[in-house]
Amino acid sequence: MKSLAIAVAFAFAAGPALAIDFGRILDAGRQAVQSAQGSPTSKEFSQEDEVALGNALTASFLGASPLHPDAGLQRYVNRVGKWVALHSERADLPWTFSVIDTETINAFAMPGGSIIVSSGLLKRLNNEAELAGVLAHEIAHVVRKHQLTAIQSNMKADFWKSVGTSVAADRVKIGGGAVGSTVGNIAKPYILDAAGNVIKDGFFLRPLDRGLETDADQLAVVLATRAGYDPYGLAGALQMLAQYKGGGDAASLFSTHPSPTDRLADLERFMPTVEGHLKQPQLLEARFKQNVK
């Protein structure tokens, strides 16, 4: 029994990057697709609130898992990510890429353009095109508002009432931060409430629906291609995951995310979409290895 508990802990804690994204349960994921395709409801965050929510979630995440101390590495990952994000339909978001200092292999996308990637994942990648593919997958979730839509659909009526009555001038001090800190300045009480509930609900730990992951993989390949990277970078990263995890994907016993092997099969079918457009796609292995040690 103990070993089962540990196995479950492992499945969640060290699930594959790009698979256990910060996300929602299966049903919420389906709702996200329906909501994204259907008519907009009034129960939606403004972009300002979306960014604030992402910041509050990021602050909490970094409270659990510290930033990697290498400033050069942080800036490098931000440059790769920003360049890719500039080729998305939400280029104007305040894109922020944070490397957390942990052996866990994972990557997370917060609403509003905050992406978190573990150093454990980075050091298993082989070149900048693979990094661009990984970041592009997370960027795609934000562009498609996968997590945001899931969060919105999970909020109760009372919450939206509080959004309506909240005063923009509200300032809140949150744990560990000084008054007037980055979070305090931008976060309204209802955003902090939402972030707190989302975290307690285990939001960081739940995978998205396979359809959303496939969508993010395909958009990621397009974004990386637009940015001039070798479009096979994401496939390379997935192969690493398949290799690392043993392909059969033990984590899928506990969650609904697709295995790297399934995702590779899906990607193979998609690659012809971009192949005709390539002109001198770059891998940038040397630059990657200078920056990721």
Binding site: N55, A56, T58, A59, S60, F61, L62, G63, A64, P66, L67, I174, G175, G176, G177, A178, S181, T182, V183, G184, A195, I199, F204
Partner: peptide, 8 residues
């Protein structure tokens, strides 16, 4: 997790 504003 509790928020770390300085880290953000």
């Amino acid at each position: 997790a509790s928020p770390d504003a300085a880290a953000l």
